[in-house]
């Protein structure tokens, strides 16, 4: 690991919450315009989090917020690992570990709404994990390395080798960004039949930490999307942002799906497109 990468990783840890917060603010403005509203100021997400920090922290079970703290720590760790150019497989495993702390926090809260939220969050994790791992496998097949630093410096954009995997990845990306139609476990929108789902019993500082973790997460997810276009950096960044805009559009166009549809469709798409793409790759690269 070179000094450069360590620096990038440190920058990520410091800057990601600001970038993520601004992204969330822009997201809210664009969403508002799509719905014919003016929307809040771009810094509104920061005001929200600062306000949450000052609120009293209510809990159902005394240890529930400790899990949230480790959720945040591991999300930051995961992102740092990614931007340090680390092993993609370890990155995915670390992301899973972080997600599990979040789910366990909701179980610990022992409230029916957070319980169902936790259950749905697990279904979401189960839905997106296969294609995320297959993306790593595909990237390895093309670049002969699992390391982000090698993948990002590959001479051609990976999307030309793995369009199938990319499409399937795009499909589950909606889950990861917590956007409709796959925002089953929690949502920023007011169409929550589960009260606030997985976050129902979290308040004050804990809720602020969840929000910050979400910002950190969005940044490294965009980083992951960028890996597909890294052959051409400028175009890559533009396309990555376009994809985020596309996700906002989807978010505002679709009603929420049931878990059955979420799981079945994402597995079917991941399985078919992933398999076809990997078989094709093993012939092309021979």
């Amino acid at each position: 690991m070179s000094m450069n990468l360590v620096l990038i990783s440190a920058l990520y840890v410091i800057l990601a919450p600001f970038l993520g917060g601004i992204l969330a603010g822009v997201d809210r403005i664009i969403t508002a315009r799509m719905q014919g509203r003016v929307g809040p100021p771009v810094l509104q997400p920061f005001y929200d989090v600062l306000k949450l920090m000052q609120k009293e922290t209510l809990v159902v079970r005394k240890s529930q917020n400790l899990y949230i703290l480790f959720f945040l720590i591991f999300i930051i760790f995961t992102g740092a690992l990614f931007f340090a150019g680390g092993d993609l497989l370890l990155f995915i495993f670390a992301l899973t570990l972080a997600g599990i702390f979040f789910v366990l926090a909701a179980y610990k809260a022992s409230s029916p709404y957070s319980f169902i939220g936790a259950e749905r969050e697990l279904i979401q994790m189960m839905s997106y994990e296969p294609i995320v791992l297959l993306s790593a496998v595909g990237m390895y097949m093309v670049t002969k390395s699992f390391y982000v630093c090698d993948i990002v410096s590959f001479h051609t954009s990976l999307i030309s080798y793995m369009p199938g995997i990319f499409l399937a990845f795009l499909y589950v990306l909606t889950i990861k960004f917590r956007k409709s139609p796959f925002d089953l476990s929690m949502s920023h929108h007011a169409h929550q039949e589960l009260v606030k789902g997985i976050t129902t019993e979290f308040s004050g500082r804990a809720l602020a930490m969840i929000e910050i973790a979400h910002w950190y997460e969005n940044i490294f997810l965009l980083g992951f999307v960028y890996l597909f276009f890294a052959g051409n950096p400028v175009l890559g960044v533009v396309l990555t942002l376009c994809i985020y805009f596309f996700e906002i559009l989807i978010d505002n166009t679709f009603a929420r799906a049931k878990w059955q549809l979420t799981l079945n469709s994402s597995w079917a798409i991941s399985g078919v497109l992933g398999l076809v793409n990997i078989i094709a790759l093993s012939y092309v690269l021979k």
């Binding site: 599990i100 789910v103 179980y107 279904i123 189960m126 296969p130 297959l134 992933g274 078989i279 093993s282």
Partner: peptide, 24 residues
């Protein structure tokens, strides 16, 4: 690499059943 398909789906399922037990 084709065998990876079997692994990734299997391991997603493992995640689900272990965590829901831990949660319980």
């Amino acid at each position: 690499p084709v065998l990876a398909i079997l692994i990734v789906f299997g391991s997603a399922a493992t995640l689900f059943f272990w965590v829901k037990w831990m949660g319980k």
